[in-house]
Structure formats: structure tokens, C-alpha cells
Design a protein around this nucleic acid. Structure first.
Length: 332
DNA sequence: ACGAGGCTAGAACCGGTGCC
DNA sequence: GGCACCGGTTCTAGCCTCGT
């Protein structure tokens, strides 16, 4: 979703790399060597600039671009001939480098604001396929790892909601019956009293079984290493992240390659454990030789469309601040 | 000690694209 | 055409910090 904010931060970062003296000057010139940026986008930026709602985003993005132009790790003061904006569309294929800007065909830059989310994928993709290959699968992860607790919650939910004509088992739910059940349950907040305990059991069962499954698939040190690389989005080529963490800290770092990682670090332990909160959750932690701090995060296994609303997804979140992550190199 | 208000993590929701 | 996936944004319960 290309919100105004996303467009502003990405395009303004690119403009600042081009060496203009100010945002307003750059917006007046509308350089045609900034590829894929249309007049509609420049109009949008001019409007938002005039409105003043995104003042700090304009400033942060501009500052990032200026620093990248000057940085010894970046353009070293050489103004690029060509900057390309990826634009609102998704690139084809299983794109793994989340590059929003490409500079002189070489530098790949991702602009990421206010988010510590690494992935939002299907649970099987994370826990079984270890993020290696994306393949559409229609398996309901809850049914896969905790069928009994899931079914028990389903049965009690149908009874509590007083619904008739519902399928015998949770596995038989289809689009329409999922919708009916979802509508019959409160959409937010605590589950009804009589469902609180079954829901807690379900959350625990999913968390424990998922952690177990993931751990089994991560038996070898080499699997653990690949998993960590993919979680942290290390790529064969280095790329840059210019953005802001969820607490507002500006982020400017280069993401090293797996080879860079191996030269400086080695995995001492990769731990995975269940930590059921209000929803199923699995925590992970990598301890490294060569790094001062471990890298930590968690995965939420959740319905993204309400209770019983379709199959769950796995949201992978980085808990360690970006600047403390091994192989993420802050740029000067 | 206790309620108002701020803050944040957690949970829900959303608008898009691309694939089956 | 529908569903899965993506990259978030929005909402809110429950904690924490105040002023009284």
C-alpha cells in the first residue's frame, strides 16, 4: 500500500541524493533522471509539502539522502546519473531485497519507516520451509499443529454463539461458515468468559507445537545459519536501509552479505521457544561469536482477518534494535 | 490511594498485487 | 475470481506515571 507517507519518504530520499540544495528546489525541478516518478507523484508531494502534515518525514528522508550522498559507505559525494524508484507496484518474482530505490544501477536502497516487521508470511513458509521458497499453500496451520485444541475451541465457540447448521469439525469450515462464526464472536478484546480457558489452551497448544516443529527443522547448525540469514534478509549483494525505527530513531545502515557475516561472526546457538501471550507466539534468539549482543525476535501466529477468519499468517518481528544487529553496519 | 491521562505492546484490520 | 501474501496502519487494553 503506497500511502502518502511511503511515497514521500522514498521519493524525497532519492531527490536528496541528487545534490539539490533543498526539498523545494528539487520539487520545482522535477528531475527527469529520477525514473518512474510521475507528475502525479510530484503533485502529491507538492501538495503534502504545502499542507505541512509530513514535515518531519520530509526532513528525515531528505537528511538520509544527503548523508547517503556524502557517506564514504555510499556515494562518496558523487552525484548519481540515475535514480530509479521502484514505485508502488511489487516487483515480479520472489523478490527478497526490499529495494525501493536503485541508484546508478548499483546501489539498492530500502526505505523503512516505523516498523520492526521482517516478514508477514504463511506459517508453513516460516516454520517448515524456513523462508527458502515461497509456495502457495492452503493448509490451516492451526489445524496442522494443534488440531485438538483448535477443534475444541471451535466446538465451544459455536455452542457459545448459539449457531445452528455449522459444520461438524473445524476442518470443514468454508468461507461462509467462517464468516458467520466470526460475526457471532466479539471482534475485539477478551473472549467471552466461557471461551477464555479453551482459547488459552489453544494459544498454548499452537505456541508449543509450533516452537517444537520449528526447532526440529533447525537441527543442524547450517540450517540455523540459513534461517538467521533469511530472517535478517541478508542477500548475495549488500544493500542499504534508510528509515526510522518504530521508536522514531533514524536508521541508516548497510546490510552485509552472508559472506560478510561469516567473516566476522559464527552462530553459537539458535534458540526457539514458545511464549504464548494473547495470541500464539514463538520467540527466537541467535547467540553469536564475534557479536556483543544476541539477536532476538518473535513470530506471532495469528488470524489476520478476525477470529476463525481464514488461515493464519506468521508475522516475524525483530526485537533487537537495528543498530545492535550483527552484520547491519551503520553508515557514517 | 486512586483516578485521569499518556504510552505502548499487542491485536485487529486494510488496500493492494499476483498467482492458482 | 478468489485467495494468499505483503507491508504496513489503526485501534485498544492494560500498564505506568502523575497530580491530587
Amino acid at each position: 500500500m503506497a500511502s502518502s507517507r511511503t511515497k514521500i519518504t522514498e521519493i524525497v530520499t532519492g531527490l536528496a541524493m541528487m545534490g539539490f540544495p533543498s526539498v523545494d528546489r528539487a520539487l520545482a525541478v522535477r528531475p527527469d533522471w529520477f525514473h518512474n516518478v510521475t507528475d502525479d507523484e510530484y503533485d502529491l508531494l507538492a501538495d503534502e509539502r504545502a499542507q505541512g502534515d509530513f514535515e518531519s518525514d520530509f526532513d528525515t528522508a531528505w537528511h538520509h539522502g544527503e548523508r547517503f550522498l556524502a557517506s564514504a559507505d555510499g556515494l562518496r559525494g558523487r552525484v548519481p546519473d540515475r535514480v530509479e524508484w521502484q514505485g508502488p507496484g511489487k516487483p515480479p518474482g520472489y523478490d527478497q531485497i526490499p529495494a525501493d530505490l536503485r541508484v546508478d544501477h548499483v546501489f539498492l536502497v530500502s526505505c523503512k519507516y516505523g516498523s520492526d516487521i521482517l516478514y508477514n508470511a504463511s506459517p508453513a513458509h516460516v516454520f517448515d520451509r524456513l523462508l527458502a521458497e515461497k509456495r502457495g499453500d492452503r493448509t490451516d496451520w492451526f489445524l496442522e499443529v494443534a488440531p485438538e485444541a483448535y477443534h475444541d475451541l471451535y466446538r465451544r465457540s459455536v455452542a457459545a454463539a448459539g449457531l445452528d447448521d455449522m459444520p461438524e469439525t473445524v476442518a470443514q469450515l468454508d468461507g461462509e461458515t467462517r464468516q458467520r462464526l466470526k460475526d457471532a464472536l466479539p471482534t475485539r478484546g477478551a473472549w467471552p468468559d466461557e471461551l477464555a480457558a479453551p482459547y488459552r489452551d489453544f494459544v498454548n497448544a499452537v505456541s508449543v507445537a509450533t516452537a517444537h516443529r520449528w526447532k526440529d527443522n533447525l537441527a543442524d547448525r547450517s540450517d540455523q545459519e540459513l534461517m538467521l540469514w533469511r530472517l535478517l534478509r541478508f542477500q548475495p549483494a549488500p544493500y542499504f536501509v534508510l528509515g526510522q525505527s518504530s521508536d522514531g530513531t533514524p536508521l541508516r545502515f548497510r546490510v552485509g552479505t552472508p559472506s560478510d557475516f561469516r567473516r566476522n561472526y559464527a552462530i553459537r546457538a539458535f534458540d526457539v521457544w514458545a511464549d504464548a501471550m494473547g495470541q500464539p507466539m514463538v520467540r527466537w534468539r541467535a547467540e553469536l561469536r564475534g557479536a556483543r549482543k544476541p539477536i532476538e525476535g518473535h513470530v506471532e501466529v495469528r488470524w489476520s482477518r478476525g477470529r476463525f477468519g481464514g488461515v493464519p499468517e506468521a508475522k516475524v518481528i525483530l526485537d533487537t534494535p537495528h543498530h545492535d544487529v550483527a552484520n547491519y553496519h551503520p553508515i557514517a
